[in-house]
Design a protein around this nucleic acid. Structure first.
Lengths: 318, 318
DNA sequence: TTGTAGGCGTTATCAC
DNA sequence: GTGATAACGCCTACAA
């Protein structure tokens, strides 16, 4: 990789002139410009981003931090955001982290590099962000928030999502619902279950909540409560449920219905029949773009939208 | 983010002394050192990586490029590599790319940043890497190679993998095998199918190859050839097959066996019963580490190893 | 039209 | 034990 100074030496002119030529700025004779551009192309010249970042105090990079596990949907989301950012000349860099220490370390490094924004899925809930960090970096969190002022948590109203899911199944004629969720403590998990419970109470239908899914716990829940539908916290759990059911010889949707959440492109590609509630992807990408532009945006009013496919049946007369 | 110069001003000393204190180098009085370290901690001081990179011409970052689709296993692999690199003070930065243009653009940027190594899954097969780029960057490719001298393609012998898979199923008593693979043209896909065919011929057993899996094509293949086992190119396809089979009411492994490849942590977490051939993950991570240390390593002699779980049955007497 | 100079934050070296 | 200075590559501003 050649530098603009070396380029200048090679062309027998000053570095300043090279710079003008490279940036298409006035004040260079056509002949000189052509000579510089040709030399630059020949050497595959690229300005050193570190030098530019040092000088301008700004980077074209946008950082992202993703836990090493449980990340398929967020990988999809970040891919989508990355696409939108690329259109603005920004580049998304994803760092996988295993635990809180690595998470904070990555944040520190991003801050030191003067990244303007960092998108994160914290590996744990409620991680405390040191004040120094929070003030020098705009942190956008998904899934679960962090402690620290200035950290922006971007999420739809998940209690509403739980309510919507139960109401949808109720409208389809289901009165006994199993809610499969996780024991992790994130905002989305807690709120969605609360929403489910609230709506189940309103509609006077039976709701059983199953945490920590496995073959035994699922069979037991099916036998105990005889649900006609399973609402899974996300598509990932829904697929797990589908695979477990198929091993037990239970047919979907004849014997039981399954509803997922996210409409994760990767997981739907795996099983295109899954009925699921689509995460407001486009709205999120739009919100991130607006936040980058300095606006304050919330997703609280955005709703997941049911995408009806083959894993939920409806009962006649409902 | 405070700079070492500002730190020096605050402590009323020169920047050089601050630097010595921060790096635990001799030539600073204990009192001064303490004063500097305290101030640094108070301000959350971090050296600016861009400045260091500019000066030293080296970066602590290792780049990685991943296509936005079909990337679950490689995400797992990169997570593993990232862990190993973190232990050496290097940080893995993954950039998702959609197509060849974005791929080359990301490579150019990595080169300009003086990243020493880049790990890549090319979004297409056989992309041409400009000579400039290849010479200023050590490129490690997985899955499929790129044209360009100096590009290091790291892959086990996939023809051998195909042979091993067929032999394994044959030993389990299967004589009619369906090989589900993809129409993409990567080294792994082509070689593995070749290996399957070769071994099937050697063992005089029936092998049918199915490209572009879907409900109809699968049913037709099952009816036409009556296979007793399905060898899927990877775990992803294996899960797709399992889900399709369950919809058709075909039981695994009673009615038919399913064998995947990769032992992808993410996908196995989704379905812990899948019998699969484990990618030599540890060996790959070790190879990457050695290559970073300047050695030339190949994975050609490494083999995938069958992990027997519940989706492959064996016939008595075999 | 072109050259020069200063500075971004480090690190390394040399002088005191 | 400490300060001053050059250099990394780029960009901006000003001088010739």
């Amino acid at each position: 990789m050649i530098s603009s100074t070396e380029l200048a030496r090679e062309c027998g002119i000053s570095q300043g002139t090279v710079d003008r030529a490279l940036h298409n700025r006035p004040g260079v004779s056509p002949a000189t410009r052509e000579r510089v551009l040709r030399a630059a192309r020949r050497h595959g010249y690229r300005p050193h981003p570190a030098a530019r970042e040092l000088l301008t105090g700004q980077s074209k990079m946008v950082g992202a931090i993703l836990p090493t596990v449980n990340n398929i949907f967020f990988m999809d989301l970040f891919n989508e955001i990355g696409r939108a950012l690329a259109a603005q000349g920004l580049r998304l860099q994803i760092t996988p982290v295993e635990n809180r220490e690595a998470f904070l370390e990555a944040l520190e490094d991003f801050a030191a590099r003067r990244y303007r924004f960092v998108l994160t899925i914290p590996p744990e809930d409620n991680i405390a962000i040191p004040a120094q960090l929070a003030s020098s970096l705009s942190i956008l969190t998904f899934l679960s928030s962090c402690r620290g002022k200035g950290v922006h948590f971007l999420s739809p109203d998940e209690e509403q999502t739980g309510r919507d899911a139960v109401r949808y199944l109720h409208r389809k004629g289901h009165h006994r619902i199993l809610h499969v969720t996780s024991s992790r403590r994130t905002y989305a998990i807690g709120a969605r279950t609360r929403g489910c419970r609230a709506m189940a109470a309103e509609l006077a239908l039976k709701l059983h909540v199953l945490v920590d899914l496995n073959a035994e716990s699922l069979v037991q829940a099916l036998e105990t409560d005889r649900p006609t539908a399973i609402f899974c916290h996300n598509d990932w759990l829904a697929l797990q449920v589908l695979l477990l059911l198929s091993e037990k010889g239970v047919h979907v949707p004849e014997d039981i219905s399954v509803l997922g959440v996210d409409n994760s492109p990767t997981l739907i590609a795996l099983h295109p029949n899954l009925t699921t509630m689509a995460y407001p992807m486009a709205e999120t990408v739009g919100a991130v773009e607006k936040i980058f532009a300095g606006k304050i945006i919330s997703l609280q009013k955005e709703r997941y939208k049911v995408i009806e496919r083959a894993t939920v049946r409806s009962f006649p007369g409902n």
